[in-house]
Design a protein around this nucleic acid. Structure first.
Lengths: 225, 225
DNA sequence: CCAAATTATCACCGGGTGGTTACATTCAAT
DNA sequence: ATTGAATGTAACCACCCGGTGATAATTTGG
């Protein structure tokens, strides 16, 4: 039996007397908890236990629980920014605005579907506002507006005269995709649409594309590859 | 001093030996808790305390906690049905499809905004599925599909040839309005749109109306009052 | 080599949770 | 009136929560 106690379930190396390392462990343990067990499992005791560290250190290093959440929010914020940066770049060919927004729908959906952390954070943002959710809201606002601006530019290219409230459009679109993606976890069908199949999401993306692509312009120019 | 003890904070009449009355008290206490303090405040102890009754009766009358939730779900389900029935009836003049859907947007938004119970239930549905959320999901599915069918009929009247996936459209619309309404509670701005002002919601409803009303038909008929 | 500062742990506190058992009261049928 | 089921209460259990003071272990500097 080793003389050092190892009560944490997944401690890894004991990390002897390294403050920076301990702080990292606490932050990453919090993120892991949010991802794997949801926001209502996030607490002083669970975090300290997951990190394999005494909970007193949370108070010593981050002041209080909010302090730790603030640090975690910064961490998740940059994660989200990187994730979105990759997504934005992909959808910028010279396609129809409808095609672009349909692809954006699919990208948003996969992002939420494949990332358990995002899902739990989105739910958390709806149910309360603390240091973490407040910081993340700002981060997401920045990302969403960047996407919107890019689409606005593309729309201006394709239809110079068109005046469409792209901010409101993207707000409703991303909000709807967020909600449907979250709901898909527990409830497969929403308003007759199968949220757990690609077919259902093709319907969602398709109806937005249909609405955007039909425009009363004198150009019947539709070249679909 | 009455001989009967009255430890509950809001008990009303002591309700001596009346099982039906006690069951009603428990159900309504649960609804009151969901509305006023959110789903994470709903528990055996809080419910019994709010009802001014011993928590043992929950187990005796409803079997277990899930049993009580099932009874509560039925109660809320009929509430929601009645609420929606009133809303649907109002929006069915001979307006443009875009006008109808814009009004539907506003109606949905007010419904969520003005009803704290609905808000908390919507959030609950996203975060977990228990007996209550499962039953409510079915109820909502029924209501939403009825609204959709009504709109489909109206669209068919106005544009007989039009083929639009109205189910998918309404799914995305109500999902988006739900999410934005929930989010408005804690975070006033989403993607540049002010969710706490009527102006912001006019933008949301307006962009959907714009998309729906412009249709490549030979009718330039736009009569805005 | 020894003391001071840092780092980390342990044991505990008051309070709350869901759930159960033992007991008391009321009421209705015999 | 007595019996016995229905109704209700109080006390208790083991567990978890956020938070704190005392204490031990390690590193660092003289």
């Amino acid at each position: 039996m080793t003389p050092r106690n190892e009560h944490g379930p997944d401690s890894g190396p004991p990390a002897r007397r390294d403050r920076q390392m301990t702080e990292r462990r606490l932050i990453e343990a919090t993120i892991q908890l949010i991802r794997e067990r949801g926001f209502d499992a996030v607490g002083i005791n669970a975090i300290a236990d997951t990190a394999g560290v005494s909970k007193v250190l949370i108070y010593r290093y981050f002041g209080d629980f909010s302090g730790l959440l603030r640090a975690v929010a910064d961490e998740i914020g940059v994660l989200g920014s990187n994730l979105a940066a990759g997504s934005i770049a992909s959808a910028s060919a010279d396609s129809t605005p409808g095609q672009v927004i349909a692809e954006t729908t699919h990208i948003l959906r996969s992002m939420v579907k494949d990332n358990e952390l995002i899902r739990n954070v989105l739910i958390w943002e709806l149910s309360q506002d603390n240091e973490l959710t407040k910081t993340l809201a700002e981060s997401r606002e920045h990302i969403g507006l960047e996407q919107t601006r890019q689409f606005t530019r593309l729309l201006e290219e394709h239809r110079p005269g068109e005046s469409l409230d792209t901010e409101a459009l993207f707000a409703l679109l991303t909000a709807g995709v967020f909600y449907l993606s979250l709901r898909a976890e527990h409830c497969p069908v929403f308003n007759g649409v199968d949220l757990q199949s690609d077919e259902g999401w093709n319907r969602i993306a398709g109806v937005v594309k249909d609405l955007l692509d039909r425009v009363p312009e004198p150009e019947p120019n539709e070249d679909k590859p």
